[in-house]
Design a protein around this nucleic acid. Structure first.
Lengths: 322, 322
DNA sequence: CGGCGTGTTGTAAGCGCTTACACTCGTGCC
DNA sequence: GGCACGAGTGTAAGCGCTTACAACACGCCG
């Protein structure tokens, strides 16, 4: 039996007699034979590897996306490589000088990283499939939530409770990556306010950098204002945690003295009884991985973005103004 | 100029004239040439890849270890592959049928996964370097905390405050992997109790499965006892979070009605003012990656385990008994 | 002045696969 | 009965590197 026949049999290609194939399979399992991935890659040009690119690895959101994607890749027999790009320079270096990507992977999942059309195009030309979560990129499947609706729903929720001065802890400004989520949530927030006859007060908008400390500092800033807000919308639960921390430091009661609303439904949110707008992070990661695998397999894939559902989870940190 | 010379020049091997090397380097950067990793692997047998194996990807502890390790690998030019093994069967399959590992990687970091001596031995024979965090394996560098001391310190802290009935929310029992950390912490806890003339009360020991819900259920169980404990040591902050959640559900005040002590110093611990025994998780991941890289480079490495420091962080969830 | 060591470069044989192409051989058909 | 055909199999040429070994130039010593 020639190596060619074995190769064909093992990979399920046609033009192999069933009897031959089963014989090959039997011997292969008996010998615990496993083809060398590097040799296969070299000969066939496919790496059977996906790379997931995230800004930070340690934050809840990203590690949860990663977990969702990893499970799918693992199951589908793809190697799962993760690279963290701390800042925009590193990110652009990765996407521009594509040597880190080309020939190392068949596809990349971009998590909350915006690739320019040129970068996306260039990747596609080099035969690298693309898929994004949190943002969209040209000509590839993507999954994200309706961030405008998130902002609108937040405003509706707080204004609907009767709040008129609503603070906003955003991620805008200090963000190291071209991250446009905060902008969309802000836009929706403004729309939502307008529905209640309110308008955005720029003095009540503070950057929180999507972290606990950032959230705490932002909250401190808001509470130090001459006329502090009676409610605060934090664009992520982690920033909301920081806000709550600052409040407890000052002896303020969440949902009574000041209402706080987050986004994500971080697993600790329920511990803090945080009212939040839930999104399904792991399933977004999984969906992105699935689309990517479909693209790599040349399965026809809808390029229509998948809008992952959100839902308001009311807990104890929101209430009518004092 | 021959390919051999170029190869040697690019990889910094000796026996290349300086003039030649600089000329090669100059041309290589101008042409943005980057060697094909698969071809290099096939020819040289080294993959320049490390695999990190973790039980779950999404939990704070593991994602933080991963973050620490990733940063080091990225910096050192190693590809960073992560695989999650949900249960012990999957884990053993990975470590026994080593085809997923051999020829795919030069080294693996085992995070809180115990490999048998045979498994470790077999990996070494196949030229795969090993390094562990959280546990130790035969003949490879490892980094972990002194879990016995963690348990002892916990008992000392709570008993020192005057508590005599101290509950323990452990990870024991339900654990899907061969995880021996809970056993060591339990042993230390017992030692610590003894220093105060106390002994372990088995009815006050409940499994919490290292998660928030597990912690909450365990706490509920403890509080439902005829004579509930006045203090509780949770073997992880996430279980402590669950315990706090259960307490707030019942209107109990942490540190006043019941004291709670955790382990880790999870980033949310300070939000909840949780008293905890801090460990430096990211730096353990980084240390393990560094040792692994050293082993792969055949740098002499101490096989003496690195004991990562711990420290008691006193916040508000602990106090004298009511 | 020939042999020899040293430092540099070239040659070529793989590494373990994939795949285009050639080949064989039994069918069905005119 | 010869022929086209297609299914099944084999042959061999790479894929892009690494590395043992050969080759060469050069200066040195005996």
């Amino acid at each position: 039996m020639s190596v060619a026949t074995v190769s064909r049999a093992l990979r399920g290609l046609p033009n192999v007699a069933e009897s031959t194939r089963s014989r090959v399979l039997e011997v292969a399992t008996r010998l615990r034979y496993e083809p060398d991935p590097a040799a296969a890659r070299l000969a066939a040009g496919r790496t059977h590897t996906v790379i997931v690119v995230v800004p930070h690895l340690a934050s809840w959101y990203f590690s949860t996306v990663i977990a969702g994607a990893e499970a799918v890749c693992n199951e589908s027999g793809y190697e799962f490589l993760v690279v963290g790009v701390g800042n925009i320079a590193e990110c652009d270096r990765l996407l521009d000088e594509q040597y880190r990507i080309e020939r190392r992977t068949d596809g990349v999942v971009l998590v909350n990283i915006v690739a320019t059309d040129a970068q996306a195009q260039s990747l596609r030309e080099r035969g690298v499939a693309l898929s994004t979560v949190g943002t969209r990129a040209a000509g590839c499947p993507s999954v994200f939530i309706d961030d405008v609706e998130v902002g609108r729903l937040a405003a509706e929720t707080l204004a609907g409770l009767g709040h008129r001065r609503i603070g906003l802890i955003s991620g805008l400004g200090e963000d190291p990556l071209n991250f446009d989520v905060p902008k969309r949530r802000l836009a929706g927030f403004t729309i939502g306010l307008r529905e209640f006859g309110l308008s955005l007060d720029a003095t009540l908008v503070v950057g929180g950098n999507f972290g606990i400390d950032g959230g705490a500092e932002a909250m401190a800033h808001l509470l130090d204002l001459g006329e502090p807000p009676t409610a605060v919308f934090a664009m992520s639960d982690e920033m909301a945690f920081g806000a709550l921390m600052e409040m407890s430091r000052r002896g303020l009661r969440p949902g009574v003295d000041v209402s706080v609303l987050g986004v994500d439904d971080h697993e600790v949110a329920r511990v803090l009884s945080l009212t939040t707008i839930r999104q399904h992070v792991a399933s977004q990661g999984a969906a992105a991985a699935r689309s990517l695998i479909a693209v790599m397999a040349s399965t026809p894939v809808s390029l229509e973005p998948v809008i992952s559902p959100i839902e308001l989870v009311i807990r104890a940190t929101t209430g009518p103004p004092a």
